[in-house]
Nucleic acid binder design. Structure first.
Length: 675
DNA sequence: CTTTCAGACCTTTTT
DNA sequence: GGTCTGAAAG
């Protein structure tokens, strides 16, 4: 009997193989990518190295979701710019047919604005609130600063620009103003009290006039979600799936928003690369990535480590840079492409030589068959491109510039739009003063007088018409315009209103700016953009919240024949790639910038910035720097950037530039290889 | 009161 | 090169 007894061991590790998940495009993804694509439930953190197919993964994930029968309106896609959201949706739509237009996508700020408009009453705001861009905030702070009645002559009191930066930083880092002052503006410690007072006034005016700055959009959204459980639950149900791109560049507030929207068991996927975090200056914290598994327990971590973009030679340089980073997620990028040519370092006599080299070399590559679209020149700061732009102009090389001064922030655009902003929010104090300031014969005193009566009246426009004081013809002209606009505000399309305002503004503009023809073209361009909008308020919102690059909408963009070089700040080059990349101004003081050398954290960020710039290149990478610069008529010798100096010698070639021989065109240069 | 002009001062990166 | 400030002229 006993020999009939047998032991039977129970095991949990036997199962039939998981049925292979079906997906039309399974073959186009590697295993890690597919894991990220098909992991829909629960929190997921994707660490995506440079060039590892991050965007591709997100795009295919959208397609996968649709194939799985998820309704597009259940998906929220948070990206760094609206453009990248649109691009992803467009590409996903090319894979499977779905209603991708119904996916809510965009920046944290634009999504926040949309949600807040629908629920403004909860946070005691009118739903027609105005959104202030940085320049608007600065101006409002300036007004509060004057109103505070501080005697500026005695000691140097911080300027409005400084105050704006400081206040914003306090919000974004979630720290008291006092602490930011001690940390970053120690020379202003004696002014902490008046600064707090100005800030209080600033906050008060914004609330009273229905205005929100960029930071408020995030703060108020958090407030809304925390305060009102019903709305929070509703949104959590609505957005069953959340995806966040460029997670390394989110700040604590944005992270909080993700948490609140995702709920406890949220299906949230964040994608990022700690090595590419370059927005700490505005409060971003790449430690959000490191902390993610703690805040979302049970989070799955997927690493994308195969680099599809660059040659091994380029990756070697990039890896050498990032190896020296103090704090990072360990990941090893492996190139799948061949070795390719070594990156080249080119010291140039001065800035002019640098520009000449760039222009000539890129034309050579073009001769070899690489289109200008496939080339880019990158720099640390926007102003470093001026000489290069002149050189490109001389040689008729077409280019688009990314980063730097923004189209919608230029004075003439803001002047014109101020008139329309008033139709959306008649208590917009800044818009009133901006438009009044343009009237001939009206100065600060008159503006104050008028503002007093306009803003205290429940019917601001009626108050304007009642005003008796400036009896000038120009003021009458202004009133006629405003009355006309006000009458048409609900009947006419934004473009029509804009044209009416333009007609009024054009003589003022001609008087005010010497380069008015260009500015008039800008305005016509703006009218063109406005044609796409049917509601004035959404047009005005987008203008402040999604400032697009100056040339972004020239119309050539969609034209495949237009072949243009890209020149860009490194920040604006994030996420992009080119066959040929030139990095200019690699000298100490410019890159890393002087302002960053003081603190270790900032220096680390410069390092990551260098990493981002080199990893943009697929095949050819050139790093140049001038040896001499002319600063206030003084010739100064430069030190090559420490990021260049520290590279192992065997990872790059160096070329010395010499003038071409006499028979050749004077502008010709030759690159001679020096081993 | 408004406009204009000269001199000082800075000057990163962006939603 | 652009913005801000103060002082003098219109």
């Amino acid at each position: 009997m006993s020999e009939k007894k047998k032991k039977y061991v129970l095991r949990d590790d036997v199962a039939l193989p998981k049925p292979e998940v079906e997906f039309t495009y399974r073959d186009e993804l590697n295993d890690a990518q597919f894991e990220a694509v098909s992991a829909l439930e629960g929190p997921v953190l994707v660490i995506a190295g440079a060039g590892s197919g991050k965007t591709r993964t997100l795009v295919y994930r959208l397609a996968y979701m649709v194939e799985q029968g998820i309704r597009p309106e259940e998906v929220l896609l948070l990206t760094f710019t609206r453009r990248s959201a649109e691009e992803m949706l467009r590409r996903a739509a090319g894979l499977v047919s779905g209603e991708f237009g119904r996916i809510e996508g965009g920046t944290f700020h634009s999504v926040a604005a949309a949600i807040l408009r629908r629920n403004a009453e909860v946070i005691k705001y009118p739903n027609n609130f105005t959104i202030l861009d940085t320049a608007d905030s600065m101006e409002l702070i300036g007004r509060c600063r004057s109103a505070a009645g501080i005697d500026f002559k005695q000691r140097r009191f911080p300027r409005r620009q400084t105050l704006q930066k400081l206040f914003s930083k306090a919000v974004n880092k979630d720290m008291p103003v006092e602490m930011i002052v001690y940390d970053e503006f120690p020379h202003y410690v004696e002014f902490i009290e008046p600064m707090e007072a100005i800030r209080g006034e600033f906050e008060k005016v914004k609330a009273a006039r229905g205005m929100m700055d960029f930071d408020d959009l995030l703060i108020k959204l958090i407030e809304l979600l925390e305060k009102n459980e019903a709305i929070r639950r509703k949104l959590q149900r609505q957005f069953r799936y959340i995806m966040v791109d460029e997670y390394q560049d989110t700040n604590p507030m944005q992270d909080r928003i993700v948490q609140l929207l995702a709920g406890e068991k949220g299906n949230v996927m964040v994608v990022g690369d700690d090595s590419q975090s370059i927005y700490a200056f505005r409060g971003a914290d790449f430690r959000n990535i490191l902390e993610f598994p703690k805040r979302f327990p049970g989070a799955r971590i997927i690493k994308l480590e195969i680099n599809y973009r660059s040659t091994q030679q380029i990756l070697n340089v990039a890896n050498a840079t990032i190896d020296k980073a103090v704090e990072k997620y360990t990941k090893i990028l492996t190139a799948i492409r061949g070795a390719g040519p070594k990156p080249v370092i080119i010291p140039a006599e001065d800035e002019a030589y640098q520009s000449r080299f760039i222009a000539q070399k890129l034309l050579e590559h073009r001769e070899e068959g690489i289109e200008l679209n496939q080339m880019a020149v990158l720099f640390r700061s926007s102003y470093l491109s001026s000489d290069l732009e002149l050189e490109l102009g001389r040689r008729n090389i077409p280019y688009v510039k990314r980063g730097g001064m923004r189209f919608f922030e230029s004075a003439h655009i803001k002047d014109l739009v101020a008139h329309l902003r008033l139709l959306a929010n008649p208590t917009d104090e800044l818009a009133w003063s901006r438009s009044l300031r343009l009237i001939d014969g009206v100065g600060p005193a008159t503006i104050d007088l008028l503002l007093g009566s306009i803003l205290s009246d429940p019917q601001p426009f009626a108050a304007l018409l009642k005003a008796e004081r400036p009896k000038t013809e120009s003021f009458q002209r202004y009133r006629t315009l405003m009355a006309d606009l006000w009458r048409r505000r609900d009947k006419s399309a934004p473009s029509e209103l804009l044209s009416i305002a333009h007609e009024y503004y054009e003589p003022i503009l001609k008087d005010k700016f010497d380069n008015y023809p260009q500015r008039i073209r800008d305005i016509q361009h703006l009218i063109g953009i406005s044609n796409r909008y049917r509601s004035l308020s959404s047009f005005v919102t987008d203008l402040s919240i999604e400032p697009q690059d100056r040339f972004a909408e020239t119309g050539d963009e969609t034209d495949p024949d237009s072949e243009k070089l890209t020149i860009s700040t490194i920040h604006s080059a994030k996420g992009l790639e080119w066959q040929v990349v030139f990095l200019i101004w690699a000298i100490e003081g410019r890159f890393p910038s002087t302002f960053s050398v003081r603190s270790d954290d900032q220096l680390e960020e410069e390092r990551r910035l260098f990493y981002v710039s080199t990893t943009r290149a697929k095949e050819y990478l050139y790093i140049t720097y001038p040896i001499n610069i002319y600063d206030r008529q003084m010739r100064v010798m430069c030190q090559p950037s420490r990021f260049v100096e520290e590279l192992p010698l065997d990872l790059y070639d160096q070329w010395d530039l010499t003038e071409g021989s006499d028979e050749e065109d004077e502008a010709d240069l030759e690159g001679d290889v020096v081993h």
